[in-house]
């Protein structure tokens, strides 16, 4: 771990930092895409590093949930290779971008970093812990050997949280991002080298919530979504962060479609934005969880994406976007024997 990290940030494991520093010094890569300390210990942010000196701010700890693959669209246009750190789930997004010809594989040097589950400060707050000043226990402890291996679960790991009301503790496993509970697995799908180990974090079924909603009456469904979507302030953060939302000109920025920047002017716009946003990424969404992570209003956007994923799995065969960079996408392909749209009513 580095000395004197800003704001009590946990820094990065030495093996990772040393390797990155070497690759930069050798000139294998022109820059590094990683995370740097933010204003608080719990909000490191995506950043470029171009010199070894700058790497003193480099962070990789339990709060590095941000998926860096979308930044590779712009980085692919830069001179030289960009070293990018990708967690197992982030590599699905990178593959999907490769498939859509939005990133250049030759311009990326991918370090697949181990992941032991990423933390969610909102989840910590939801546990009633307010006035957070610093958090201990988010640093990663890696053994030097066997990169890419998966270790046992989170076990008894505990976060120690210093707040203005005194010190609190919380088991690491209770502070995870929703997406880590339904992790797709700790295997990196694309990389140049692997550093660090991962831990198993999956302890829930990713379609359980969708199934619960499907079982509701139309009135209950409507009430549930109206309640959630009424919170939307149309900040567009969910779209901006999404690696699948990479169109050069987005329909939600177009005056022609009359849908740009309409804050929840009426109940229709609220729904329309969300249906169309989810539809535009259907079959391409890797379920990376970034949209739900960044929503300032805490809207569970994954419930939209996963409904499409579940339907695609059931109707057109199991499909995981980003698993590889070759498979045909379900909405740009078809089968002669596909179900008719009337099946929606028949399924009940």
């Amino acid at each position: 771990m580095q000395e004197g990290m800003k704001n009590g940030c946990a820094g990065a494991p030495a093996v990772l930092l040393e390797r990155i520093s070497t690759l930069l010094a050798e000139g294998t890569v022109a820059r590094v895409l990683g995370w740097k300390a933010g204003d608080m210990a719990y909000n490191p942010e995506p950043a470029y590093f171009e010199t070894q000196e700058a790497l003193k701010d480099f962070v990789y700890d339990g709060f590095c949930g941000a998926n860096l693959s979308k930044y590779m669209i712009e980085a692919s246009k830069l001179e030289g290779k960009t070293l990018v750190c990708l967690k197992p789930c982030d590599t699905y997004s990178f593959n999907q971008l490769l498939k859509e010809h939005r990133v250049d594989r030759e311009k990326a040097y991918i370090i697949g970093v181990g992941c032991g589950g990423k933390l969610d400060v909102e989840q910590i707050r939801r546990k009633g812990i307010k006035g957070i000043q610093s958090i201990d226990g988010a640093q990663l402890v890696w053994e030097e050997s066997d990169p890419g291996t998966e270790l046992k679960g989170i076990g008894d790991d505990v976060l120690t949280i210093r707040t203005i009301y005194g010190e609190k503790t919380l088991p690491y496993g209770e502070a995870l991002l929703e997406r880590c509970h339904v992790c797709k697995g700790k295997e990196h799908r694309v990389y140049d080298e692997l550093i660090g180990q991962s831990r198993d974090t999956k302890d829930a079924d990713r379609f359980a919530q969708v199934e619960r909603i499907e079982a509701m009456s139309p009135e209950e469904k409507f009430a549930f979504f109206q309640q959630e979507l009424s919170k939307c302030i149309r900040c567009n953060a969910c779209r901006n962060v999404c690696p699948a939302c990479s169109c050069r000109k987005c329909v939600f920025d177009s005056n022609k479609f009359d849908s740009s920047q309409k804050a929840n002017a009426d109940s229709f716009e609220e729904k329309m934005f969300h249906i169309i946003r989810a539809f535009h990424v259907a079959g391409r969404c890797t379920d990376c969880g970034e949209c739900s992570r960044v929503c300032p209003q805490g809207i569970p956007l994954h419930l939209f994406n996963r409904k499409f994923i579940k339907d695609i799995n059931e109707l057109y065969g199991t499909y995981q976007a980003g698993e590889n960079a070759e498979d045909k996408m379900p909405l740009t392909s078809f089968d002669f024997g596909d179900a008719e749209p009337g099946i929606v009513g028949e399924r009940g």
């Binding site: 209950e220 249906i275 695609i312 057109y316 379900p330 909405l331 596909d338 749209p341 009513g345």
Partner: peptide
């Protein structure tokens, strides 16, 4: 293609109540 799209869209509308 339209068949797949409409199936998914209708299913989403149903899901939204």
């Amino acid at each position: 293609y339209a068949r797949r799209r409409m199936t998914l869209l209708f299913s989403m509308l149903d899901y939204l109540g």
